[in-house]
Simulated assay, not measured.
Amino acid sequence: MSDFEFIEDLEELSSAEEFLEYFEIEFDPKVVMVNRLHIMQRYHDYLQKMEKAGNLPAEEAALKDAYQQMLGQAYQDFVESDAITEKVFKVFRMHEPQTTFVPLDQLLGS
């Protein structure tokens, strides 16, 4: 059981629109319609990065503000850019040039 009421509220949300409405973030439905999965994945990535860095606030109000800020940033990323440019999912990075390291001794030994 969570100590924070808003974490319990989040568990009830199921769509990008519900998250944006819950955090009172104004949004363009067309942007969300095209990018909903990308926005939510980016939001998750931001939360995970902040958690790994140990930067999540301990008190509920500050934590809710941090969640709201990260969701707002995730949404804004796709207002200012697009899914292909942002490359949130691995499928968008699969055809990028790959680099391979070959040690000099292997080149000279052949």
Rank of each mutant, 00 (worst) to 15 (best):
T99F: 04
R42Y: 03
S14R: 11
Y22T: 04
E8T: 06
L71H: 01
D105E: 14
K52Y: 02
E8M: 03
Q69T: 12
T99N: 07
Y46C: 03
V32I: 06
F4A: 05
A74H: 03
E21T: 08
V91W: 13
S81P: 05
D82A: 04
E96Q: 14
P103I: 02
D28R: 07
F4C: 05
E86R: 15
D65F: 01
A61Q: 12
L107A: 00
L37K: 12
H44E: 15
S2W: 07
T100V: 11
Y75R: 09
L108R: 12
P29W: 05
F78R: 05
D82T: 05
Q106F: 15
R93G: 09
V31T: 14
I7M: 12
S14K: 13
Y22H: 10
Q106K: 15
A16I: 03
E24W: 00
E18N: 14
F19P: 01
P103E: 15
E51Q: 08
I39W: 08
R42F: 04
D65S: 09
E24K: 00
L63G: 02
K30G: 01
A58V: 13
L108H: 08
F92L: 05
Y22R: 08
E17P: 04
A58I: 14
E26Q: 06
S110W: 14
L47A: 02
L37G: 13
I7Q: 10
N55F: 11
M40L: 12
E86Y: 05
G72Y: 01
Q76A: 04
H38K: 07
P29D: 09
Q73A: 01
S81R: 09
E18C: 13
A66I: 07
M70T: 05
